[in-house]
Lab assay of single mutants.
Amino acid sequence: SGNANTETLPSGWEQRKDPHGRTYYVDHNTRTTTWERPQPLPPGWERR
């Protein structure tokens, strides 16, 4: 039932692989990409 990797990503993020097989992350909220895995927001924090 779903990929465990995507469940731990913050809302709006997606994990992808480039043509060389390297994993990167897409932030659909800001339309940016990063090599660093995004950290889920700490409990009690809200994204503004």
Rank of each mutant, 00 (worst) to 15 (best):
E14D: 06
E36T: 12
E7V: 08
Q15F: 02
R37L: 07
E46D: 13
P43C: 14
T33N: 01
P40Y: 05
R47E: 15
H20E: 14
P19R: 11
K17N: 07
R37S: 06
G12D: 06
R47D: 12
G44R: 07
T8P: 14
P38F: 00
W35R: 07
Q15S: 12
P10L: 00
S11D: 11
Y24S: 02
N3W: 01
L41E: 10
E7R: 05
G12K: 02
P42W: 05
A4F: 14
T8L: 11
Q15E: 14
H28T: 08
P10M: 06
G21D: 08
R16Q: 09
G44S: 11
R37G: 05
R31V: 01
P10S: 04
T32D: 02
A4S: 14
G12S: 03
T30F: 05
S11H: 14
P19S: 10
L9M: 12
P42M: 05
T6N: 14
Q39A: 14
P40E: 09
T33G: 02
G12T: 03
E46F: 05
D27K: 01
L9Y: 02
K17L: 09
Q15V: 13
Q39V: 11
K17F: 06
G44Y: 05
P10K: 02
L41A: 14
D18P: 01
K17C: 10
N3T: 12
N3S: 07
W45L: 14
E46C: 10
N5R: 10
T6V: 12
E7P: 12
P38R: 02
E36Q: 15
G12H: 06
E7T: 10
W13L: 03
T23Y: 09
P42C: 08
T6W: 07
R31E: 09
T33D: 01
W45C: 15
Q15N: 03
T32A: 04
H28C: 06
E36P: 00
R16H: 04
P40I: 11
L41H: 15
T6F: 08
T23C: 01
S1K: 15
Q39I: 10
V26I: 15
P40H: 08
Q39S: 13
Q39K: 13
Q39E: 13
N5Y: 09
E14P: 01
G21A: 01
E46A: 08
G44K: 10
R37Q: 07
K17P: 02
R22T: 15
T23E: 04
T30L: 03
L9I: 05
E7L: 08
Q15W: 05
S1Q: 04
E36N: 13
R37V: 08
W45K: 15
D18L: 01
R22W: 03
R31Q: 14
K17V: 11
P40N: 15
R37I: 05
R48Q: 15
T23P: 07
E14Y: 00
W35Q: 04
G21V: 00
N29R: 09
R37Y: 04
E36R: 12
L9T: 05
P10A: 03
L9F: 04
T30E: 04
H20A: 12
Q15M: 11
R47Q: 15
N29W: 04
E36D: 14
E36H: 15
L41M: 13
P38D: 00
N5V: 07
R31L: 07
D27E: 03
E46G: 10
P38K: 01
P10N: 00
T30I: 02
L9K: 05
S11N: 08
D18G: 03
T32M: 10
R22N: 13
T6L: 09
R16C: 10
P10T: 00
R31Y: 08
T33Y: 04
P38M: 02
A4H: 13
Y24R: 01
D27R: 01
L9A: 06
H28M: 08
W35A: 06
H28S: 09
R16I: 02
T23R: 06
T34C: 06
N3R: 05
T8D: 14
P19T: 11
N5F: 06
T34I: 00
G2Y: 11
R31F: 02
G12Y: 00
T23A: 13
